[in-house]
Structure formats: structure tokens, C-alpha cells
């Protein structure tokens, strides 16, 4: 609560001052799905860093719950405040398009990051990781852990989740490679991103498939619930686990051996890249067209490429691997 008060007063101050004092650099606003989410707090840290690097002003905002209505209201405010750029992690692919078009008509540079909006409502999208890469990397990791042999299972979020389903499709694609000939995907189950259901599903997997060697769980709740289930069932070392997880949640399970390694994109870098791209768009250094190249500060060279949804995107890079060697340094970050 205190934080949102502070943000509110900062916004008020910014809007008051920007009307008569020429603010230093551009004002770049980051709008996230919801506030109070450690993932986005980490994005904001990167955003602040990038804004400082380019001499811009950085604003961070989000609705209290991840709703489209809350985001629309905030974007309307941004337009009224005449910010120079908006980086949005959208709560809906299409619903924000009208208000974002209005923002662009007012000369605001709009980009999406983390969760894309329709290409009509953005200049460019900053993609955290390539779906194909995410899928393949997890299969490669579990294969190494189990020695390329045995039954594996996937414990996903809800059966309707587009992200997870795309990743799973690429996992199945990767498993067709002859080097995985001795591995078999025994089951795909859904824990609905509920801790109790995910835990039960993991327990069910152990009992339904006594020879199970590994589980991939491409969702943060699923992977930590599965780690707890592996621990409780006394299967550490017998059933291997990888997936997409948050270091703070996974620290315990990396230390006790239930999960040797897992992946996630680095949210600090993601926020940094998004805010950097927004800054370059404001300067006119880039325009968001396919094929443009640029240097994003400490992150190095990037090329804008065509995205699957028909627009353009910048790809952050391969997902980050977390394991015993670096978990301590990350567990307090997000």
C-alpha cells in the first residue's frame, strides 16, 4: 500500500513538473500485469537501470490485480501525463489495442514486453525467450539428468494455457530426435497452477508410473510443488526434475537435490532491454522495423526480427539456467 502511495505521489509530481520544466531526457513508463509480483519488481529494477543509462526518467505502474480494465485506466493516465514511451506487459493480447492506438496517435512510443499485445497496438515486442528454445532446452536438460534413458512426464499448468501448450509442442518435437530414442513421454498432466493440485498430480505420477525417471514442469507453481512432492515421497535422485521456476521458490529444492537445474529468463535483463528499446525509439535511433540492429547497453548487440504474430520483436536471449552454482545469488532477487 505504501508503495502505491509513493508511486502515486511520484506520478503527481512528475505530471506537475513536466508541464513547465523540461524534464531530463524522455519519460518512459513501464506498465506491468499487476504490482506486488516479485517478477515484475525485478523487471522494474532493470528498467530503472536502463533509463539511468540513457538519461531518461522511469515510471513503474500496474493495477493491483491483473485486469485489463486496470491497465486501460493507467494507460489513459499515461496519455494525459504525456509520457514519451510505454512498455507494457499485457493482460490481454487484443483488449488493450484501442487505448494503445490512442497513445500512439498522441506520439507515444508503445512497445510490449513479457506478454505481447497485438502488433496493431505496438511498435515492437521484447520477447523474453523463444518458445522453441524454451521447449528444447528443458528436454535437453532432463535428458542429461536421466542419461538419455527412461520414462518422463510433463506436469503443466492448465490445459488451456497457450504458453505452456506451445512449449510442450516443441518438447514433443525435440523428443523425436534419434538421440532421445530410449526416452518415452509417458504422460502429460495438468496441475492448473494450484499448489495442492500440482502436488497431487506429481504424487499420482509416481504411483501410476513406478519407473518414471524425470519430470518437466514448465510452470513456476508446478515445478516447486513437484519438487516438494519428490522430497516428501523420498524420491530425490530417483526422479529428476527440471522446468521453469523462480529462484526464490526453488532455492530449497536445488539445495536438497530434488531439482538439479531449472530455467527462467532473467527479469532484470528483460526490464532493462524493454526500457532500453523504448529509449532508443524515443531518440529515433531505431524505428522498430525488421532487420534493424542496435546495441542495448550492457546486454550487447540485438537485431529486430519478424515475430510469429506478424509484428516485429527483439529476442532477449536463451533462458537463464539456475543450479546449485548460482542459486544463492539469485534466491533473494526474485
Amino acid at each position: 500500500m505504501k508503495k502505491s502511495l509513493v508511486i502515486l505521489s511520484v506520478l503527481l509530481l512528475v505530471s506537475v513538473f513536466s508541464s513547465f520544466a523540461l524534464a531530463k531526457g524522455f519519460t518512459i513508463a513501464m506498465l506491468v500485469k499487476n504490482v506486488g509480483n516479485p517478477f515484475f519488481e525485478a523487471c522494474a529494477r532493470g528498467g530503472q537501470e536502463a533509463a539511468d543509462a540513457l538519461g531518461n526518467t522511469f515510471i513503474f505502474q500496474g493495477p493491483p490485480t491483473p485486469t485489463v480494465e486496470g491497465q486501460i485506466e493507467i494507460i489513459e493516465n499515461f496519455i494525459a501525463q504525456r509520457v514519451n514511451a510505454i512498455c507494457v506487459s499485457a493482460n490481454d493480447f487484443d483488449a488493450l489495442v484501442p487505448v494503445l492506438k490512442k497513445a500512439m496517435a498522441n506520439g507515444i512510443k508503445v512497445i510490449s514486453f513479457d506478454s505481447a499485445v497485438n502488433p496493431e497496438g505496438r511498435i515492437v515486442h521484447v520477447n523474453q525467450a523463444d518458445a522453441e528454445q524454451i521447449g528444447k532446452l528443458q528436454v535437453q536438460a532432463i535428458a542429461e539428468m536421466i542419461g538419455y534413458e527412461g520414462e518422463i512426464a510433463i506436469l503443466s499448468a492448465a490445459a488451456t494455457m497457450t504458453n505452456q501448450n506451445t512449449w510442450i509442442r516443441y518438447m514433443q518435437e525435440e523428443l523425436k530426435d534419434p538421440k532421445y530414442a530410449k526416452m518415452r513421454l509417458a504422460a502429460i498432466v495438468y496441475g492448473d497452477d494450484l499448489r495442492d493440485k500440482s502436488y497431487n498430480e506429481a504424487m499420482g505420477l509416481f504411483k501410476s508410473y513406478p519407473d518414471l525417471k524425470g519430470i518437466i514442469s514448465p510452470t513456476t507453481v508446478g515445478v516447486s510443488a513437484t519438487a516438494k512432492a519428490i522430497t516428501d515421497a523420498g524420491l530425490i535422485g530417483k526422479v529428476k526434475l527440471t522446468g521453469l521456476g523462480l529462484p526464490s521458490e526453488m532455492a530449497e529444492w536445488v539445495k536438497n537435490g530434488a531439482c538439479e537445474a531449472f530455467f527462467l529468463w532473467n527479469p532484470v535483463d528483460l526490464g532493462y532491454l524493454a526500457t532500453y528499446v523504448a529509449g532508443l525509439l524515443c531518440e529515433g535511433t531505431i524505428t522498430g522495423k525488421e532487420g534493424e540492429t542496435f546495441t542495448a547497453g550492457r546486454l550487447g548487440e540485438y537485431t529486430i526480427r519478424k515475430s510469429q504474430d506478424g509484428g516485429t520483436e527483439v529476442l532477449l536471449g536463451p533462458p537463464f539456467r539456475f543450479d546449485a552454482s548460482n542459486i544463492d545469488e539469485w534466491k533473494d532477487v526474485f
Binding site: M1, G36, P38, S224, S248, E252
Partner: peptide, 12 residues
Amino acid sequence: FIVSRGEWIDAH
């Protein structure tokens, strides 16, 4: 949500 400030308590 208010008391947790939106964060969660983890196993470790």
C-alpha cells in the same frame, strides 16, 4: 495481499 505486499513465503 496487503500484509504480504504481494510476495510469498518460500520453502527456504
